[in-house]
């Protein structure tokens, strides 16, 4: 349980700059996420924090102590790998006990702690099995137990759910959340899946091309993205170009000849901006902006409805399935958009 500080870390591989002056801070007990696509540098940053790579510049601090030059064996960090990395020739019990054995704890202590860890992830019945006898979800739980049994200051998770089936992913996500609540370990999740990040982490650091694009509470990353790239990366968007106009003393922008009140640093008269509206904020109603239904995609409980405006522009709406069942392709209907749902961002 500790504070993690990554200060101004840069890293290059040959001529390529992978990380550029990246800084992260995780307070004691918090669960943060490092969100980025492949090639963004997130895995490299994780390996630097873990100690497998040395940064070209910058420092890593745990509870204020500089561990940048400490080898991984001596860092008090637990790691859960993407492919679990369970030792194939050891039973689950022996896998979990491994770290404790390396520390030369007494047999009694080891037995106690391993039992507790198995209980934590609810794997007691599988203790004597070998890793290849377990399902993906069970293997992941074992990997978590193995890392946590050492009660590390920091827990690193490297895309822990990406190797699992969709269905199991959800269950394991809940498990991880529960385990975190119970142990209160400081944790950093590295992932490309924004749903994972949004659900598990309290704060998200969005990273792209080695730079931090935005570092904020989860709801803000989604609700108030810092720029166009983040907006498009985390969730779907409707985007419109517009110019800010002054009307009755306030700044407005227009979509399909309707004016919307906006605010924020970009709300300056004459400023050309990009408007972003999330599909779920576009509600289908009996009056408002006229649209025609172009395509409906049912996704189970929800449906994506693709609409065209009078001027030909496209609009995407996300509605609950019952709503979508009331309309059909080719039908003319209306949509309502609330002013507060319109976010203005700089043209990148």
């Amino acid at each position: 349980m500790a504070r993690l500080e990554v200060c101004n870390v840069s890293f290059s591989y040959g001529d390529t700059r992978i990380l550029n002056d990246v800084s992260i801070s995780i307070p004691d007990g918090d669960f943060h996420a490092l969100l980025g696509s492949s090639g963004s540098g997130k895995t490299t940053l994780l390996r630097i924090i873990a100690g497998f790579l040395k940064p070209d510049s910058g420092t890593i601090l745990i509870n204020g102590e500089d561990i940048t030059n400490v080898p991984p064996e001596h860092r008090d960090i637990g790691i859960v790998f993407q492919q679990y990395a369970l030792f194939p020739h050891l039973t689950i019990w022996e896998n979990i006990a491994f770290g404790l054995r390396m520390r030369k704890l007494s047999k009694i202590e080891i037995t106690q702690k391993v039992a507790k860890a198995l209980e934590l992830v609810r794997l007691e019945p599988s203790a004597q099995k070998l890793p290849n006898e377990l399902s993906g979800g069970q293997k992941q739980r074992a990997a978590v137990a193995r890392a946590l049994v050492l009660e590390p200051s920091l827990l690193l998770l490297d895309e822990p759910l990406s190797a699992l089936d969709r269905k199991i992913r959800g269950e394991l996500r809940d498990e991880l959340a529960r385990v975190h609540r119970q142990t209160d370990t400081t944790a950093l999740l590295v992932t490309h899946d924004q749903e994972e990040a949004l659900v598990l982490a309290s704060e998200i650091v969005v990273i792209e091309n080695g730079l931090v694009r935005q570092s904020d509470r989860a709801e803000n990353i989604y609700g108030s993205p810092a720029d166009l790239w983040v907006a498009g990366f985390v969730g779907r968007t409707n985007q419109f170009r517009s110019v800010c106009k002054l009307k009755n003393g306030e700044i407005v922008v227009s979509i399909a000849n309707r004016d919307f009140l906006v605010s924020g640093p970009q709300a300056i008269e004459g400023n050309e901006v990009m408007l972003v509206v999330r599909p779920e904020e576009v509600s289908i109603s009996s009056d408002g902006i006229p649209v025609r239904v172009k395509e409906i995609r049912f996704m189970g409980a929800t449906a994506q409805v693709f609409l065209t405006l009078i001027d030909g522009c496209e609009l995407e709406s996300l509605v609950l399935a019952p709503v979508a069942r009331k309309i059909a392709v080719g039908v003319e209907t209306f949509v309502k958009i609330d002013s507060s749902s319109v976010k203005i961002l700089a043209l990148t």
Binding site: F52, Q82, F87, F98, M102, L150
Partner: peptide, 12 residues
């Protein structure tokens, strides 16, 4: 990854 994970668990 097996070697890395052994290192992270403290193995010399």
């Amino acid at each position: 990854a097996l070697i890395d994970s052994a290192r992270s668990l403290g193995a010399s």
